[in-house]
Amino acid sequence: MPDRYDEDLVAELRELEAWLVTPEPADQRAAVRDRLVRGTRRRRRIRATVAAVVAALAGTVVAVAPARAAVLDAVGDLLRVAGIVVQRDAGPTALPATPSPLPSLRTATLAEAQRLARFPVKLPAGLGEPEMVVLADPDPAGAPRVVTLVYRGGKVRFDQFDGTLDIGFFKKSGTGQWTEIGSAVAIWVPDPHPVTYVGRDGVERTSTARLAGPTLVWADGLRSYRLEGFSTLAEAREVAESVR
C-alpha cells in the first residue's frame, strides 16, 4: 500500500514528470487508420523508416551566414567541420511548429547512389551492408547532394555530402565537443539536439518529428560525414574509422 512507501520521494518523482522533456511525437492518425483499413504492415515499416531519415536531416531553423571553403572554423560558440556547424547553445530549444520534409527524397540501390553522386560514396565497413540507401536534394542532372545509408532498422544513419559548397547541416547543442577521427577533426554531440538542413537552394528545411540522437560529425578532405545512432563516442569512433 502507498503508506508503506517513502512518500516524500514518491511526491518528488511525481513532480519530476513535468520537468522531463521528450521529443515531439509524430501525428499517428493517418498512419493508424491506414493500417486498420488496409493492414499494410510491411509497407508501413519502410515508410516509417523513410520518414525517420527525413526527420534526421531536419530540425530547428537557425540563420547561418554562408562561409565557403573553410574546412575548419571555430568562432565564438560555433564548432565547424566543413559543411557541418554545431552551435553551442545550452538554452532550451523550441521546435518550429510546421513539419516540412527534405526535397526530393528517394530510395536507391547502393550502385545507383555511387553512379549518381558527384563524390565517392563511402561505406562504414564496421556496419556491413546498408539496409536502405536514400538520395536527397538532387541537382538538375539528378546528382544527390546528400546520400544517407540506413542500418539497424533505422537506428543508425550515416549521411555524407559535399561540404565545401555551403553549410549543409546546422546543429544546436549545449554539449558539442571537439575530437579527432584518425587525423581528421571531428565534433561529438552526445545529447539529443535539433538539426537544420540547409538545402542546395539555400532554403532551410525543418521538421518537428524528432530530435537527432547522439551524433559524430567529421570531414575527410572536402567531404562531410554525419553518423547518428551510437550512444558513446567510442562506438561511434570505431564505426567512423571503418569508413572506406
Binding site: P25, A26, Q28, V32, A48, K155, R210, G229
Partner: peptide, 15 residues
C-alpha cells in the same frame, strides 16, 4: 528513436 513506431504499433494493437 523508436518511440513513434512503438506508439503506432500499440495503437493498432489496441484497436
Amino acid at each position: 528513436d523508436d518511440a513513434d513506431d512503438v506508439v503506432q504499433e500499440a495503437l493498432v494493437k489496441a484497436y
